[in-house]
Structures are given as structure tokens and as C-alpha cells.
């Protein structure tokens, strides 16, 4: 049993790498998506809404498969780690779009009115008044998205990325101890989620003081 520990620790590192990269890509897509959905241009709003609808309305696993297995057909050759990260990142970005947009929209309308009344432009208002307030409010819900994202990295196991779930399955086969393998990888997932959760809470608390 002891011989498997190093493999699981390595796999945990891969899971962490996947999580970080996916989160960064997701936040980027989320910010772009939110900006698109709130744009003055109808075409951008439509693109944003379609992005959210399609990527939230279909299974993430299928999105991974389309990119990894189907990509070569349209000239996109990616290794499994990259394909998985990109597909999952764009997927979680659709959820983060709604989280970010929700936070921005929840800032009281009177704030915008006051800023515009003083003569500030739309962008100045967004930049100095609305976004600072929205940013504070979106930390917790984004934390929920990130929590789901960390567990979602398991979806790259079927395309053979050597992360925690893949490793668990691999060793279930050779050790015939599924419960132990489940518990080991489960524990590592929970540690990662716990640490990240604390980070989010800390960030949230700091944001409220400023």
C-alpha cells in the first residue's frame, strides 16, 4: 500500500496544476463573457448569451472529448493536458460569466446614477464605482465555481491525464483495494479544496475591510 503514496502525491500536484490553469482561463473567459453580455452592441450581447447557453447546456465531458478527439480534424492537435485544461477552462468560464455579471448587476443602481450625475462617463463609472463594489461581492460565488472546478478536473481522467482520479482508477486495478484508493484520492481532493476554500475566505474577509 505504501508504494502507491508517491504516485498519489504526484497526481495531486497535477490536479493542482490543472485547477490553477483552468481557474485562470475560466476567470478570463468569465470576465470577457460578462463584458460581452453587458455590452452596448447587440451582436456582442448575443455572442455572450450564446456562449453561456451552449457551454452550460452541454456536458463538460463532451466538451473535453470534442477538443481532444475532434480537434485534430479541424487542425487543433493538443496533448491531453492542454486539451483538458482549455476545454474545462472555457466550460467553467461560462458559469463564471454569470457569477461576475450577477455581481455587477447587483450593485445598487443609485451608485451608477450618482456617478453619472457628477459627470463621470460610463467607463469611469464602471471602473471607479461599480467594479470595485462588484469585485468584493463576487469572491464568494466565484469560490463556489472554483470548488466545482477542482472536482471537475477529474474529467480529464478519461483522456488519460495522470491526475488523482486517473491514479485512483489505475491502482484500483492493481491493488484490488478500491475503498482505500478512493479514500486516498478523496482525502487529497478534500485537502486541496479545504486549502483553496480558506484562501477564498481570507480574500473575502480582506475585501470587506478595505
Amino acid at each position: 500500500m505504501l508504494r502507491v503514496y508517491p504516485f498519489f502525491l504526484e497526481a495531486a500536484v497535477v490536479t493542482i496544476e490543472l485547477s490553477v490553469l483552468t481557474a485562470l482561463l475560466g476567470l478570463t473567459c468569465g470576465a470577457l463573457g460578462a463584458a460581452a453580455r453587458m455590452s452596448r452592441l447587440t451582436i456582442l450581447r448575443w455572442i455572450g448569451a450564446t456562449y453561456v447557453s451552449l457551454w452550460r447546456g452541454t456536458p463538460a465531458l463532451i466538451q473535453v472529448f470534442i477538443l481532444y478527439f475532434g480537434g485534430p480534424q479541424i487542425g487543433i492537435q493538443l496533448d491531453s493536458f492542454a486539451a483538458g485544461t482549455i476545454a474545462l477552462g472555457v466550460n467553467i468560464g461560462a458559469y463564471m460569466t454569470e457569477t461576475i455579471r450577477g455581481a455587477i448587476v447587483s450593485v445598487d443602481k443609485g451608485q451608477t446614477e450618482a456617478a453619472r450625475t457628477l459627470g463621470m462617463s460610463r467607463w469611469q463609472t464602471m471602473h471607479k464605482v461599480v467594479l470595485p463594489q462588484a469585485a468584493r461581492m463576487m469572491i464568494r460565488p466565484l469560490g463556489v465555481n472554483i470548488n466545482a472546478l477542482i472536482k471537475g478536473t477529474a474529467l480529464v481522467a478519461p483522456i488519460s491525464v495522470v491526475e488523482l482520479t486517473y491514479t485512483a482508477q489505475r491502482f484500483i486495478g492493481s491493488t484490488y483495494k478500491p475503498f482505500e484508493m478512493f479514500l486516498l484520492s478523496g482525502l487529497l481532493y478534500m485537502v486541496i479544496i479545504y486549502v483553496v476554500g480558506h484562501g477564498i475566505n481570507w480574500l473575502d474577509r480582506r475585501a470587506r475591510i478595505i
Partner: peptide, 20 residues
Amino acid sequence: VNQVRQDIGMVFQHFNLFPH
């Protein structure tokens, strides 16, 4: 509009001060 609004001051029922 942004220019003109600099010459008009407005006070709201709910103050609308910037909390941050």
C-alpha cells in the same frame, strides 16, 4: 452629457454615497 452634468449637481433621496 458628461460635460453638461458637471454643471448640474444632484442630491438623491437615498444619498448614493460610494461605500468603498
